[in-house]
Design a protein around this nucleic acid. Structure first.
Lengths: 138, 138
DNA sequence: TCCTACGATGGACGGAATCCAAGTCAAGAA
DNA sequence: TTCTTGACTTGGATTCCGTCCATCGTAGGA
């Protein structure tokens, strides 16, 4: 994620302390924070950071393809910094925990031409659901 | 969908005019209405029906497995009555149009055991995205 | 060091969904 | 048929997410 800031600067990003903190908070694997969680963690390091800035920065990171937006369901969107390693998500229907997973094959290839109805299909997103080990026994 | 009401009555549902109208509105193939759209169409037949009732009824239908909730993304959830015919969704990234599609194979089978992390995986939901014919040319 | 355009702020706003207390009514009992 | 009751409906308030906007601050080039 260190290179992220470099990459962004290369794209003409003005490097502010706020953006730096948001990028740092999103560092790591299996990170799936909501915008509010990102804001809370960012505020630990930079108390004055506003929610609008967090939303703006997250939106920009998504547009730049550095972060993926995950609508797990109804509630708030989650932000996944693991954008450069294609993967899918496995969600616990009990507690909402999220794991990155790597299914076999390419889901896009499983949609035959006659099922595309003239769409220029560019992306396939798979969400697996089930109970996690904790919720199974609990 | 006619049997739906029968099935629900069998499960102890009190059959009110509101529930009947909501179920009727959701009848058909390739129906993907938002709660507000359901409310609007229901209100044509039953002007006093309240939004809370529509939300309640939709929630119950989802719990009973008669209707599927589709979080296309950011915006309002959509409700898909085609719950007894397994299918996936193809969404236009331009205009948001939705189609039911049937990919080859079973996405659940593509998740190897070592990628399940002890989860009891029960469901795989695939969302294809791309531009529809109208949005491609336009 | 200065300038200025880009970014940050926070409070107002909007849409989607839920909550709640009060009123209504479907359907079983008598 | 009428009565009774608890499940259902209502609509307004409320919460939760997210966006907008006018104003202020500042990163980084000149």
């Amino acid at each position: 994620m260190n290179d992220l800031l470099e990459r962004l600067r290369g794209r003409g990003w003005r490097l502010t302390s706020q953006r730096r903190v948001v990028a740092e908070v999103l560092d790591g694997e299996h990170v799936h924070l909501t915008a509010d969680e990102v804001h809370a963690r960012a505020a630990e390091r930079l108390p004055e950071i506003s929610r609008a800035t967090v939303y703006n920065t997250l939106g920009e990171l998504v547009t730049l393809g550095e972060v993926i937006e995950v609508s797990t369901d109804g509630r708030a969107k989650r932000y996944d910094p693991n954008a450069h390693h294609p993967h899918q998500h496995l969600i616990c229907t009990g507690c909402g925990a999220i794991r990155d997973v790597h299914p076999r094959g390419n889901p896009l290839a499983d949609l035959p031409a006659e099922q595309r109805f003239g769409f220029a299909v560019s992306q396939a997103e798979v969400t697996y659901r089930g109970l996690c080990p904790d919720c199974c026994t609990g």
